[in-house]
Design a protein around this nucleic acid. Sequence first.
DNA 1: ACCTGAACACCGTTCAAGT
DNA 2: ACCTGAACACCGTTCAAGT
Lengths: 217, 217
Amino acid sequence: MSSAQERRPGRPARLSRDAIVGVAERIVTAEGVAALTIRRVATELDSSPMAIYRHVRDKGELLALLLDRAAARVARPRLPASPRRRLLTLWRLLHDQLAEQPWVVEALARSDLMGSSIVWLLEAILAAFVACGLTPSQSLDAYRAVWRYTVGTLTLRHGAIRTPEGQRKPSFRREVLAAADPHSAPTVAGLAESWDRPWPDYESGLTALLDGLLAHA
Amino acid sequence: MSSAQERRPGRPARLSRDAIVGVAERIVTAEGVAALTIRRVATELDSSPMAIYRHVRDKGELLALLLDRAAARVARPRLPASPRRRLLTLWRLLHDQLAEQPWVVEALARSDLMGSSIVWLLEAILAAFVACGLTPSQSLDAYRAVWRYTVGTLTLRHGAIRTPEGQRKPSFRREVLAAADPHSAPTVAGLAESWDRPWPDYESGLTALLDGLLAHA
DNA sequence: ACCTGAACACCGTTCAAGT
DNA sequence: ACCTGAACACCGTTCAAGT
């Protein structure tokens, strides 16, 4: 029966890429991306830091693998018939899923979107753009425009989260309001009270962007 | 004559916040944000690392100060009469200026935009939105939507730059194309050749977004 | 083939002490 | 008031050696 097994020479592996990504995911979910270090992963697996490098090229690759896992978890939703509403649903899905894991932002800048696990989502978005009247080529550009908006939203939200609760950056608001004398900057001064209010949600900007992108269809 | 000087007790300062930000700026421009460390700044000023902390709270504040300097360098342009074209000019100005310093992206996520040095730009943008028919409140939301798009654009461009020249992430493209069988993902498969082409420029997405935002005016 | 130990060349930040 | 020295508690990564 052992002849059926693929026998490979040398010392058998105790670690695996999967196990490594698994603990990395746990660390990052529980304590944020700052807590993710190669040494920490190694300790958690009762191995030396260097053993990790046998399975993962460097920390950047580990981050990319993590991102891929997050993407793989996005479940296929039931989609509305109207292509425009389909776009709204799909993008909100992607946004919400990524927003749940704030650490992804760190990985986003490094990785050109994500792995093959969400081709279905990419396909659905591109097909919906086409169904709205764009050419495939225009659809790709439109996809990238909305992707920029999405990454920006996540980046800024993440920054806000990361800032410590108590002292959430009074510097900017105060400086701006101090410098905004009503003569040279009346609009800014007039909005003084409004800076504190919550940012518009993802969807409102998305709607505007889609309106603009689809107008030329 | 020394009585005219403001005499302060204690040892006179050798370092200054300005000098610190100055060398930080030089480091970051020449070698990127990764090269910026408190210790490095201290060495460059022939002081101990700890002396820096007398003038700057922590590394995050140093980054924010750097961002403010970059913002302060944005020169007031001659503006077109049409408010819509004014918006295009202003946003492109902001984008181009920030794109020149790729390290800003790191700072952006931490800092709620920037300091008082560009209130004039903020004012000009908000006023132009108002001139386009939005209420001040809507203008603030519109401003934030475009800011998201801008930050996303910078983040993604920065990531592309940071990726080493030779091996610019074949993983995603290849994986996607491999997984994109023409039956389940025809649109993705059809665009296979197009993934390599350059991203749309900042302005095209900006135009679409402004179209959408101003449509409800 | 896989893993370990020891080392290299760093970090940010705190604390107590000097001038 | 401002700066220094020494230390704490870490990093990612390389190299040569062990099993």
